[in-house]
Write a protein that binds this DNA or RNA. Structure first.
Length: 948
DNA sequence: CGGACCACCTA
DNA sequence: GTAGGTGGTCCGG
């Protein structure tokens, strides 16, 4: 490598955007509520470049005020870009400050884009004998590449590519880099709103360049084209020329390359530290100090190099692999998840590991012996299906030491598989060995089918992370990337995309199964170390050990149990519905004067508002369609028969498709019952959710809808269904937490809380409260739980905005402590960045200090609602665990089947009925002690409708 | 065939 | 105004 001087020109916004979106699923929010993702992403990249390349000259270029020249040429230029996200706008001043403190020149020029500045400077520096590297992911820069000017392009997944002339020629299939302009002009760029030639994409553009050399060449020779393409291109020649000019990076910006100014000298470290401290960057501070203070030996941990090219700016240091076989993996580079360089991720290929399959009978016996000597083991089952009821074991991975693990493949033959799993029974049923896993409910259900019970302490990393940050997603890939800076082998790599050609895990070669499965177990084990600490720090260890983990077993058994469904009844109901739907359909067509698809809001909107012109100014949805939502239509229903028919039609079709038709198809053939899947980690407040099918939204409000509930029936004639409901649990919680005596007293006296509220706010005796008054009071009571606003209230009632405001004011005067409580919750959230439930379940509210009033308002409503909804969830979870344990301990035949947020449904063995009534009511009402009594109503019946 | 959007079901 | 899930249409790869 020559000692030619090297200049690095950084395309700031490109790296800022990249950094910002890299963190988009897990934005970095500091305690002041600032979204620092963009700053962190940008600084990670900048330091990474400096550490890797040690440039002697460096500058950072920003766009400023958009490109006036290009807009003049074409006014739509970049017009369809979304508004810059708030997280990026707020980041830029910080980044400017940091760069200033680092003594790095910031280049921007009103009316020019960073591309143009970089283009101009690179040419100037080249003339002065520099080698120039343009740091940007944007392929448009390829047009600027020369013998001395290179693109230095961050690559997804980590590392960089250096693009010189040979790379550009290869990537774009051009003869020389300038032709990239023609290429971009032809295919266009939707993000920059460069129109391009119609009908020309990447492939065609390459073909044309190859054939004609340039845009002009193409336009001059359209006679060689044929068909539609010929017509389109001939008609759009002007657009083509314009597109080319838009794609061209300018080289004549009034900026000057000043070698001295661009020298990368020593930054003002104290100043940078101060800024970082203010932003609460801890790891980045260390990283920064190491980069500038240190000896430069701190090379990036284990970069994944892709496409090594001849033009590498500096020879790379040999990578310092860890000394021991397992030391690299999860060793010193223990990332705490707080800051992660999104571009440099470890993978199985870059990390040393020892994963082995256990194949022979002898090896298995030895392995189990070893397993039984452990105190804590992570395991992960591989199966043929994501539905545990249909899944067969393909293998089980085990790991108890980071970087190391074993895989036991299972035979396809069921008897042989059962024989093999019996070898592991002593392990799974050992009370003294802790079992670690990701989504253990799944593994427990699979093993239950083999009659294996998983005993002992459990640690589920998915649940742990749910408590650490319920708003995030908790799949293993995301967790590994966030906390371990590691990209696991993707399942699609193994079995392909889902669809026709997807393989079963069984079809994957054992070696690959081993790598994949043990990696999962290994990662899960490493995540556990991480999360254990974080649970302690957030004080949620107890919630984890005493609620979520025990609940996992409860849910597994409820799901395995399933519920009996009367399919014949549903089929009969379907027939009835079908007749009614067809009748309505005919009436609607007659009234509309034509046939159309009533289920298509688009077509419906045209009929109602263009053909029939039911309204002067129809309401539109945000996408510009006519809104045909329920509230809009029900307003018109009394004047227009067709509208009422449409509403009825929609109601009935929904009922039929979602419930009456769908449920019988969800009956599990093996058991003849319906097995829902409870999601324990999706609702940010701590509630469960239910799917496949969702049994938490079976209709009840309308007479027609509630018929569906008749289809949920007891196991057989020896059983009956029992439903147990918490009465007004959320209002009781807010009364208790706010210590609002008036409301507490009403509950203690067993009053109808909505009537009681109405009596107080409308100042009438409780016996004289009208239906409407009670209704309005009820709406406000719920409004309080959801985080009131006069606007929302007036939408829900027939009150005007000002009447609503008055009602809310009177309400607060009646229940003064509620207002104080609500304010306290919001204040707490502002100060701490989170709110919590009675059991300390947290929800972080990153927007609570947002400058945007709408965004902040939403966070404030969350601050009020999350502790209420979440505490109710906590309480019913306690009740479920206790009831489940008692049913098991007492060897009762009765089973808990369903949970619907404030209701539990049981299959009761008739002889146990009286015992069960007492047990269930007692456990539910005493699950958690509040200053307000909890009240549970029990109902019994031969189907879910009767039992409610 | 997957994702966005709309509509509608629950607590 | 809170928290979820599912089914239908429509559009684009």
């Amino acid at each position: 490598m020559s000692d030619q001087k090297r200049l690095f020109l950084v395309d700031a916004y490109a790296l800022i955007f990249r950094g910002y979106y890299a963190f988009i699923k897990n934005p970095r929010i500091n305690s002041k509520g600032e979204d620092t993702s963009a700053i962190m992403g940008f600084m990670n990249s900048l330091l990474d470049v400096i550490k890797r390349e040690r440039p002697d000259h460096l500058a950072v270029c920003f766009d400023k005020g958009g490109s006036s020249d290009r807009v003049e040429m074409y006014e739509a230029y970049k017009a369809n870009r979304d508004e810059t996200p708030e997280g990026i706008r707020t980041a830029v001043p910080h980044i400017h400050n940091i760069l200033k403190a680092m003594h790095i020149p910031i280049l921007e020029k009103e009316g020019y884009e960073a591309d143009d500045i970089i283009g101009t400077l690179s040419r100037q520096a080249e003339k002065e004998g520099y080698k120039v590297f343009m740091v940007t992911p944007d392929k448009d820069f390829a047009q600027l590449v020369t013998d001395n000017i290179f693109m230095y392009k961050p690559v997804f997944g980590g590392g960089y590519e250096t693009w010189g002339i040979p790379e550009v020629k290869k990537k774009f299939e051009v003869e020389k880099p300038e032709q990239v302009i023609d290429f971009l002009g032809m295919m266009g760029d939707s993000s920059d709103n460069i129109p391009g030639l119609p009908g020309v994409g990447e492939k065609t553009a390459k073909k044309f360049i190859n054939q004609f050399g340039s845009m002009e060449g193409l336009l001059a020779n359209t006679d060689q084209l044929k068909g539609k393409m010929k017509e389109k291109i001939e008609a759009n020649g002007e657009l083509g020329v314009l597109s080319k000019e838009l794609a061209r990076i300018m080289l004549d910006v009034p900026v000057t390359f000043d070698a001295k100014d661009f020298e990368l000298d020593h930054p003002d470290i104290e100043k940078v530290k101060e800024i970082f401290q203010d932003l609460e960057f801890r790891r980045l501070t260390e990283n920064f100090i190491k980069t500038f203070n240190g000896n430069g030996e701190t090379t990036v941990a284990t970069p994944t190099e892709t496409n090594k090219t001849e033009n590498k700016p500096t020879p790379k240091k040999p990578q310092s692999a860890g000394a021991g076989q397992f030391s690299l993996f999860g060793g010193g580079d223990n990332n705490d998840g707080e800051e992660t360089n999104q571009y440099v991720r470890k993978t199985a290929e870059t990390t040393s590991h020892f994963y082995q399959s256990v194949a022979s009978v002898m090896a298995t016996k030895l392995f189990v012996k070893n397993l039984l000597n452990q105190t804590s083991v992570c395991f992960d089952t591989e199966t043929t299906s994501i539905n545990p009821l249909q899944a067969e074991l393909v293998g089980i991975a085990f790991s108890w030491e980071a970087g190391k693990g074993f895989y036991v493949p299972f035979p396809e033959d069921k008897n042989e598989a059962q024989i093999l799993i019996e070898e592991f029974r002593p392990f799974f049923e050992d009370e003294n060995i802790e079992k670690i896993g990701q989504n253990l409910k799944y593994d427990i259900k699979v093993l239950a089918k083999y009659n294996i019970e998983v005993k002992g302490k459990l640690f589920d990393t998915m649940l742990a992370h749910y408590l650490i940050n319920p708003d995030m997603r908790h799949n293993m890939d995301v967790l590994a990337e966030t906390y371990l800076n590691y990209t696991p082998i993707s399942i699609t790599e193994l079995i392909g995309k889902k669809g026709k050609n997807q393989l079963s895990m069984r079809d994957v070669p054992i070696e690959k199964q081993t790598e994949y499965a043990v990696e999962d177990a290994d990662i899960t084990l490493q995540l556990k170390e991480h999360f254990e600490k974080e649970l302690g720090e957030a004080n949620t260890q107890k919630l984890f050990d005493e609620i979520e983990v025990p609940l996992l077993r409860v849910l597994a058994s409820m799901e395995l149990e399933g519920i009996n469904l009367d399919i014949e009844f549903l089929n009969a109901l379907a027939e009835e519905l079908n007749d009614d739907i067809q009748n309505l359909e005919q009436k609607i067509y007659d009234e509309a004067g034509e046939e159309f698809n009533i289920a298509s809001p688009k077509q419906l909107g045209v009929i109602l508002f263009e053909k029939l012109k039911l309204v002067d100014k129809p309401k539109k949805t945000k996408t510009g369609q006519y809104s045909t939502a329920e509230d809009v239509l029900s307003y018109l229903a009394k004047d227009h028969e067709i509208v009422q028919h449409i509403l009825d039609y929609r109601g009935l079709s929904k009922l039929k498709s979602t419930y009456v038709d769908a449920l019988p198809n969800q009956v599990e053939p093996h058991t003849g019952r319906v097995h829902t899947d409870y999601m324990q980690t999706v609702a940010a407040t701590g509630r469960l959710s239910s799917n496949n099918p969702n049994l938490q939204n079976i209709p009840i409000r309308t007479e027609r809808g509630r018929q569906v509930r008749k289809a949920f029936i007891p196991r057989d004639e020896n059983y009956t269904l029992l439903a147990a409901d918490y009465s007004q649990i959320e209002l009781r919680i807010i009364a208790a937490l706010s210590k609002e005596e008036t409301m507490i007293e009403a509950f203690r006296n067993g009053e109808d809380i909505h009537a009681s509220t109405a009596s107080k706010v409308f100042n009438v005796p409780i016996s004289e409260v009208t239906r409407e008054q009670r209704g309005n009071a009820k709406t406000v009571n719920f409004g309080i739980i959801y985080g009131v606003s006069a606007f929302g209230l007036s939408n829900q009632t027939n009150l005007t905005r000002s009447e609503s405001k008055e009602l809310i004011d009177t309400y607060y005067a009646t229940y003064p402590k509620l207002r104080i409580y609500i304010q306290d919750q919001v204040d707490f959230a502002r100060d701490n960045g989170y709110v919590q439930t009675v059991l300390g379940r947290r929800r972080y509210l990153k927007d609570i200090n947002s400058r945007n009033a709408v965004v902040r308002g939403a966070a404030e409503r969350n601050a009020v609602n999350a502790p209420i909804q979440g505490s109710a969830a906590d309480i019913i979870k306690i009740a479920m665990i206790r009831i489940h344990d008692k049913l098991k301990a007492g060897k009762f035949k009765s089973k808990m089947l369903l949970q619907v947020h404030d209701e539990l449904v049981f299959d009761i063995y008739r002889p146990e009925l009286e015992d069960m009534k007492v047990l269930i009511k007692t456990e539910m009402e005493n699950a958690y002690k509040l200053e307000v009594p909890l009240d549970v109503e029990l109902d019994i019946g031969d189907n879910w409708l009767e039992a409610h």
